[in-house]
Computed example of a mutant assay.
Amino acid sequence: MNFESNYRELESQYIMPAFSREIMITKGSGCTVTDADGKQYLDLVAGIAVCSTGHCHPKVVKAIAEQAAELIHCSNLFYVPHQGALAKKLVEISGLPGNAKAFFSNSGAEAMEGALKLARIRTGRKEFIACEGGFHGRTMGSLACTHKPAIREPFMPLQPFTSFVPYGDVQALKGAITEETAAVILEPIQGEGGVIIPPPGYLKQVREICDAKGVLLIVDEVQSGMGRTGHWFAFQEEGIHPDIITMAKAMASGFPMGAIVAREGLEFGKSEHGSTFAGGPIACAAALASIDVIGKVLPEVAAKGERFRAALAHLNPRVKGLMIGITIGDHCADVQKECAVHGLLVNCAAHGNLRLVPPLTITNAEIDKATGIINAAVSKFASS
């Protein structure tokens, strides 16, 4: 495919400068991407935990192409091809008991907006509790429950009102709940926060507190879901059932797609929520194909994560499947750039934490190559 060679000039003149970027990615296959200059990289960013089936997986490409040739859009005024089948699949892999149901969106932020609306309208309460270090989106509602001051404070005041408690602190959470609390919102692993893993048993304790206090539990699986941690959803490791799950990112291998799944008794009535594009036929076809591919590689995810752990052991990585965080500190950006020089894409999340979220299809040979580059890059700046 041809692209504009003057893309930097065009962006500078016509695109709002909301992003910092240096490389144009023009092609991808599996765990490898190619930039505008023809340089290849092993990709451990994967669109920020999006391309979990690898770039342009043949089954996903086929599903998108076949559906695009039949019907691209029809809106939710009509039954949409593949929607029912996908909703059934999401309910099944979520493991929520009873007659759980799904509602589709176009992104993780939109999924959170839907979760907030659903919690408010079904409980009649208006306030929420979220965690320090948590990230749930940049739309106004999802931003209200996102803690990061740098992106939150310029848009204050925000609604719905949200109280923030330290991540992993169940006593602080318990003390923050009031009669106006509709739900507690948390990530089972904080992704944007730097792959921060809570203490064992934390989710179980939060579930028990929510049950005792009569508030809902919303678990944000946008980054940690869809097989990323070796389970379909990270909360499943502790054997709990949230009231509402938000998901997106890897759902459709890069085609914009999100959803919420809510337990029995929590659902939108007619006209309480809606979307023109959400759950479109191409998105649903891509998601079904993606789930099929992920299901086949899911049994290998934990072992691949342990291979990363062993190779990076001296850096004390935080590992849950193929969601990996390494505290680098002030040189995180330097390490990221050094890795890119040597053909490896990694990402710096918050607080100097290197985040690795590669395709779940990554091979052992690719893991070994990637960890070798990371170790060399970290060593280069270790004494600085």
Rank of each mutant, 00 (worst) to 15 (best):
K39E: 08
S271I: 02
V341E: 14
G225W: 05
V261A: 10
G325W: 02
N2F: 15
S290K: 02
L322N: 07
I373N: 09
G191N: 14
F268G: 01
Q205Y: 05
K337M: 10
L77I: 12
A69T: 13
M24L: 15
A109E: 11
F103T: 15
Q171F: 12
W232R: 03
D37I: 01
P200C: 14
T146G: 04
I23L: 09
I129K: 06
A286R: 00
G329S: 11
V293C: 07
E272L: 04
P199C: 05
D43G: 00
A250L: 07
L158T: 08
L71D: 01
T178V: 11
L360F: 13
P58D: 11
E70I: 14
V80W: 04
Y202T: 12
F164M: 09
E264H: 09
I196L: 12
I218P: 00
A313I: 11
T327R: 04
K337P: 04
E4L: 13
P154A: 04
E338K: 14
E4V: 06
A278E: 03
G352K: 07
E338S: 14
L116M: 00
A286P: 01
E113K: 06
A250N: 03
G168S: 08
A119D: 04
H314W: 09
K88C: 05
L312D: 02
L344W: 02
H55S: 11
I121K: 01
V293D: 08
G28S: 00
E153M: 13
P154Y: 09
I189L: 10
K148L: 15
T361A: 06
V206R: 00
G329P: 07
D334W: 02
C145L: 13
Y202R: 15
P358E: 03
G280V: 01
P358V: 03
R309H: 10
G124C: 07
C131R: 04
G254T: 02
V33D: 03
I362C: 04
K380L: 12
P17V: 12
E366W: 00
E132L: 09
A340R: 12
L86R: 00
A115M: 15
T246L: 04
G84A: 09
F3P: 06
T276Y: 15
F19L: 07
G269W: 07
